[in-house]
Design a protein around this nucleic acid. Structure first.
Lengths: 157, 157
DNA sequence: CTCCACCATTAGTCCCCCTAACGTTCAGAT
DNA sequence: ATCTGAACGTTAGGGGGACTAATGGTGGAG
C-alpha cells in the first residue's frame, strides 16, 4: 500500500502491462501505423486511400451513383464529392447525369483510371506487406479473418 | 418500377472483396469501432481514454514527470498538459515541482484518483468485451498477441 | 560562462469523421 | 393534380486526435 517511501523509476519508458494488453488501444495504435504506411505508399504517385477505395469499388461493382459509392466505400457522401472531383480532374473517372433519375450522377471508371488503379493495387499490396511484416502467412490470414468478423459485427448494428 | 436493365447493379451495398480483405482498412475500421465503444463506456462517468491511460500508468509505474508519462502512454507532451489539468482539477492527481530538477513536475496519483481508477478499470473491461464479442477467448488472446507484435515492430523503428 | 539539451506550456496545423442545411428531383398518398 | 416525404449531390462547418513550432525556464557538460 505504501509507496511514498521509495523513489520513482526515472527511466523505464515502456507502457504498463495493463495498457499493452488492451485490445481497444492496440487496434488504435496499429491503425495509426496502417494509415501512415498506406498513405506513404500511395503518396508516391499522389494518390490517397479514399481515391483507392473509390476506384476499386468502381472496378468491382461497375458504374454507380455517388450515394452507392458512399455506402460501399464507407466514405461520407459529403467527402465523396471532393474525392470524385479530384479523380475527375485527372480523368480517372467520369461523372454523367443519370437519364433515368436526374438526381443521380453515374460515375464511371475510365480506361486511364483502370490502368492507374493497377499501379495503386501494387502499392497497396506493398503496404499490407509492410504492416503485417512480423506475421506468418497463416497468422496474417487468421488476423484478417478475426478483424472481418469484428467489423461485420459492429457494422451490422 | 420500370427498372429496365441498367448495366450497373443498383442495390448490392457491400464493399468489394478486395477492400474487405485489406488489413490496413480493416484495422482502421475496427479502430473506429473501438474508439466509439471505449469512449461511450468512459463517458458514462465523464472520463476519457487519455485520462485512463495516464492514471493506469501512474498506478503501475508510480509517480513520474510529465515527459515520462508522455513517453509511456503515447500521449503527446502538448496534449498531456490538458489531460493533467483535467485530472488535477478533480484532485485525481497532484502536480508538484521536483526538488531535484526544477524543470520537472512530479505527478502523483491521489487516493481519490486511485479509487476512481478502479471504476474506470471495470468500464474499460466492459469495452474490451463489447469490442471482442464475436471472438472466443482463445481467438481474443491470439488477436491481441498478433496486434502486440505488429505494434512492437512498428513502434521500435 | 557558454552552449546545448531537456522540461512544461501555449498556440496552431492537418486530416478524418460526421452533422446541418440547401435546392433539386423522385415517388407515393390524398 | 397537388402535396408530402424522401433521396440525391453539394457546400459549409464542427470536433477530435495526431502532430509541429515556438517560448521561457532549468540542468549538465565543456
Amino acid at each position: 500500500m505504501t509507496e511514498h517511501d521509495r523513489p520513482w523509476p526515472t527511466s523505464a519508458s515502456a507502457a504498463p502491462a495493463r495498457l499493452r494488453s488492451l485490445a481497444t488501444r492496440l487496434i488504435g495504435r496499429n491503425a495509426a501505423h496502417a494509415d501512415r504506411i498506406s498513405n506513404a505508399h500511395l503518396a508516391t504517385v499522389g494518390a490517397t486511400r479514399w481515391q483507392y477505395s473509390t476506384l476499386v469499388t468502381l472496378r468491382d461493382a461497375g458504374p454507380a451513383s455517388q450515394a452507392a459509392l458512399s455506402e460501399r466505400t464507407g466514405i461520407y457522401r459529403s467527402d465523396m464529392v471532393a474525392v470524385l472531383n479530384g479523380l475527375a480532374d485527372v480523368a480517372y473517372v467520369e461523372r454523367a447525369p443519370d437519364p433515368a433519375d436526374r438526381r443521380r450522377n453515374i460515375v464511371t471508371l475510365t480506361p486511364t483510371g483502370r490502368s492507374h488503379l493497377r499501379m495503386l493495387d501494387q502499392l497497396v499490396d506493398e503496404a499490407q506487406d509492410d504492416l503485417l511484416a512480423p506475421l506468418s502467412p497463416a497468422e496474417r490470414a487468421e488476423l484478417i479473418r478475426s478483424l472481418q468478423r469484428l467489423d461485420d459485427h459492429h457494422s451490422s448494428r
